[in-house]
Design a protein around this nucleic acid. Structure first.
Lengths: 240, 240
DNA sequence: GCAAAAGTGTTGTCCTTACACCCATGC
DNA sequence: GCATGGGTGTAAGGACAACACTTTTGC
């Protein structure tokens, strides 16, 4: 197309676009949560017969004239009743045969939710938190999408304070460390971990203690989002 | 849509997909190069009259049943005559009014080319290397796409040895440092820069010297891709 | 001989890692 | 009193930042 030598200008862009093949476009939300020391992902049962019994991401078509980000927000709202959720575009998946109903290109969005804070208000299609570790076959290419997003998350959480979205407002250092260990799949030294966060000086001691733990209760902290935003660095690294 | 309470399975996915609105889908290639100590980007003149005179990225529709990655490769081949080029998906842009001809969603791909190595064989539509610094208004939302990709590049180049794609096979440390300074827009200490690369031990001394420089010639090096691939780390950081 | 860039080392600081003991609480 | 995790400090090594002088080459 348009490899012409002369600068022949196209006067009617609409006509040009009408010559393009079109595809169905969807968004899929990969919503991570954390509970019982396990990373979870929010799934529903696929309602396609070919994928009978398999789990599926929360997805839907993008409406005419709808922004992609807005579509992802809408899907989340419609499926779970939650809004005002942090959501990031991760990748676009366009394998021509990824959907049995014809070509459907999907844009994957990722979000991290506090399982306690966001009660699921809608439970249609068996919406539930599924353990990431035990996730096997899924509908469409959704396993691939989840894997991609999980890798994205592992990298992302080392550079940005996303983890705090997965915890209660007030959390103990142990909970924070468990979160990092669960997501990254590695063991971290407790003293160094605490020292690290102490030196960052981004945790606010709320002068409260854990309740109902069968051992010495730990102090609770909040994340200092304000200070973090003020001091954001432009030069990157392992840190945040 | 499918917020039904009962598990009524859909038997005909094709019929379902046919109810989705469809959009035109394109790929746009943001090709960075490096020349005369400046970061450049490969552009053509837009052939839409509404954008008369403005610069545009190398883009084209995605064909029916064409992979997104393949489409990006094809665009690059068709526009420049180059193939076997490293290309990465960066972001999907779906603003409903980004194209004057109707809704066109585009997936941006980024590549980094060695300007010397890849002679432009096709020069249609005034294909040329444009200085990134002097880039002003562009057709469509292409300025936004370029800015996004440039930010992506700055981050990416700190974590991956992409820079070597922009240099000749054999390069001097000065050239390498110039590249980093140009891309990141900062000054780096020469001794520390050299020490850093020396300690990484990923450069092969080819026992040659620069030619035709009006000063003391520097040693030339090659990047040790093999060793890099062997020792890739899984734990990330500023390093690579 | 002069201009221009190549090449090279040291020191202080900070960050990271590895590692072991006492403390507070629930039961 | 015992089990469980909370809380703490130090020493060594490695990475990074700051800094100046001599050398080689082209002209």
């Amino acid at each position: 197309m348009s490899t012409s030598q002369q600068p022949v200008l196209i006067k009617n862009p609409t006509k040009l676009v009408s010559t393009y093949p079109t595809v169905a476009l969807t968004v899929d939300c990969v919503i991570f949560g954390f509970e019982a020391n396990q990373l979870k992902v929010l799934l529903i049962r696929s309602d396609l017969e070919v994928y009978k019994g398999m789990w599926s991401l929360l997805g839907d078509m993008v409406k005419r004239d709808e922004e992609l980000d807005a579509a992802a927000q809408r899907v989340l709202l419609q499926r779970t009743g939650m809004n005002d959720v942090y959501l990031e575009q991760v990748h676009c998946f366009g394998n021509p045969s990824r959907h049995p109903g014809g070509r459907v290109v999907t844009v994957a969005y990722c979000s991290l939710l506090n399982v306690q804070h966001h009660q699921l208000k809608i439970l249609d299609n068996e919406l539930h938190w599924h353990s990431l570790a035990s996730l096997q076959e899924m509908a469409f290419d959704h396993k691939e999408v989840v894997d991609y997003c999980y890798n994205w998350l592992k990298k992302r959480i080392q550079e940005h304070p996303l983890g705090f979205n997965l915890l209660p407002d007030k959390f103990s250092l142990r909970e924070l460390q468990n979160l990092y260990e669960a997501i990254l799949g590695i063991q971290l030294d407790r003293r160094n971990f605490r020292k690290k966060f102490a030196s960052m000086d981004l945790l606010i001691d709320v002068n409260e203690m854990e309740q109902d733990v069968p051992h010495r209760p730990g102090k609770l902290y909040k994340f200092n989002y304000e200070k973090y935003e003020r001091n954001k660095r432009t030069w990157i690294g392992i840190d945040f």
